[in-house]
């Protein structure tokens, strides 16, 4: 038996209250990723047949390392938001949706930190 009016019920459930934040973060990271990914593609093309020392030196170069760190942050943030939307759209079993959301969030942070740590290690090694 429900004692609350439909309106009060809806208010109680509320929205995620993060709609604009999500939307805005997705756009900001998207804008950032346009030049970042063009730079990345161009760089990778230049490194296709490079040996270990060349690749290592390229990542260790401070500007490259810095831009790579920003790219890693933006890419994982953007991908996390995108995967979240996919889960929201297609997974309709609530507990599964929640589990996947948690998984995507944790995996994004772990992978992002791992990538960033690798860059920092390479940059500080030599």
């Amino acid at each position: 038996m429900k004692f609350r009016t439909p309106l009060s019920h809806a208010r109680g459930l509320g929205s995620a209250k993060e709609g604009t934040g999500h939307w805005w973060a997705q756009r900001l990271t998207a804008i950032a990723l346009v030049p970042l990914m063009l730079w990345f593609a161009w760089s990778i093309i230049g490194l296709t047949s490079a040996d270990y020392a060349t690749v290592h030196a390229w990542i260790a170069q401070p500007t490259n390392a810095g831009v790579l760190l920003i790219l890693i942050y933006a890419a994982f943030y953007h991908s996390m938001l995108g995967l979240q939307v996919i889960i929201e759209d297609y997974v309709h079993v609530r507990w599964m949706e929640l589990m996947l959301m948690i998984l995507v969030r944790f995996a994004s942070i772990i992978l992002g930190v791992a990538a960033a740590l690798a860059v920092v290690l390479i940059a500080t090694e030599s």
């Binding site: 270990y52 690749v55 290592h56 990542i59 890693i72 890419a75 994982f76 991908s79 995108g82 995967l83 992978l111 791992a114 990538a115 740590l117 690798a118 860059v119 290690l121 390479i122 090694e125």
Partner: peptide
């Protein structure tokens, strides 16, 4: 696909490190 591709990026960076 690109989200999955980040796995390769992480793997590749760790390999270099």
């Amino acid at each position: 696909a690109l989200s999955a591709g980040t796995l390769l990026l992480v793997y590749w960076l760790i390999a270099v490190a």
